[in-house]
């Protein structure tokens, strides 16, 4: 789905009404992070329809609903202290940082706990990956783990259910260097975990970016990521 400038308002309306399919809605959400015009159109659509919600007769909520919420609230992490996240592989804004992904730096700390478990398991095997990356979605939830063995083989383990439309496929990317740009590691057919064999790439490094995008069936036609980012994360060296 290409977002035409003239269609912005129409797409924003359909997004706010919940009429877009999952992939389209995901794309709108990804685009909103760096497209001010689209964000404005969505905000305008929200406020246009809001009276239909705020005019509703309130119901009395369960007395323990607040307590349940309060118990589950995590401590707030100060945003100002967060480490800046490197530009994304398919970020078309020069030097731009997508604000939605900023929270990832924080969530990555939680993810490292999960990573520790994964590493303990992976380092006991005979062939060791050179790097391991935990991939998170925009909400900071763990979606997948990539183990790159450095011999043009990478194992991608999905840790959540992905719903992929029939005409789309999940494609795995890495960014060996800014000069080289994002390189495809391969496609995840049927949205399953897989071991991928890629063309020769430089030896994976610490903090190298890995990401999974939703592309048209058969993979991105341009050789670069074009679709919405489903998950991304930075590599760590197993120690």
């Amino acid at each position: 789905m290409r977002i035409d400038r003239q269609d912005l308002a129409a797409i924003a309306d359909e997004y706010v009404l919940g009429l877009l399919d999952e992939a389209e809605a995901a794309q709108v959400e990804a685009e909103m992070a760096h497209d001010a015009a689209l964000s404005d159109a969505v905000a305008a659509a929200r406020d246009r329809f809001l009276p239909l919600d705020t005019g509703i007769e309130p119901v009395s909520v369960s007395p323990n609903l607040w307590d349940t919420i309060a118990e589950r609230l995590p401590d707030q992490v100060p945003q100002t202290g967060a480490q800046p996240v490197a530009p994304t592989a398919n970020d078309n804004v020069a030097g731009g940082v997508r604000p939605g992904w900023r929270s990832m730096a924080i969530s990555a700390m939680a993810a490292s706990l999960i990573l520790a478990v994964g590493l303990a398991w992976s380092v006991t095997r005979t062939v060791e990956p050179l790097v391991v990356a935990v991939l998170l979605n925009e909400a900071g939830e763990v979606q997948a783990v990539v183990e790159d063995f450095g011999n043009n083989t990478a194992s991608v383990r999905l840790l959540t259910e992905f719903t992929v439309p029939a005409d789309r496929t999940m494609q795995v990317w890495t960014l060996p260097s800014r000069d080289m740009g994002p390189m495809s590691l391969g496609l995840l057919e049927g949205a399953h975990s897989a071991t991928l064999h890629s063309p020769a790439l430089p030896k994976p490094q610490d903090t190298q970016l890995y990401e999974i995008t939703l592309e048209q069936a058969g993979g991105s036609p341009t050789g670069r990521p074009t679709g919405p980012i489903l998950a991304k994360g930075f590599a760590k060296l197993p120690r």
Binding site: S39, D40, A43, R46, D47, L50, T54
Partner: peptide, 9 residues
């Protein structure tokens, strides 16, 4: 970018 209420809802 729009009202706080709209964002919450």
């Amino acid at each position: 970018r729009g009202s706080a209420r709209g964002w919450i809802y």
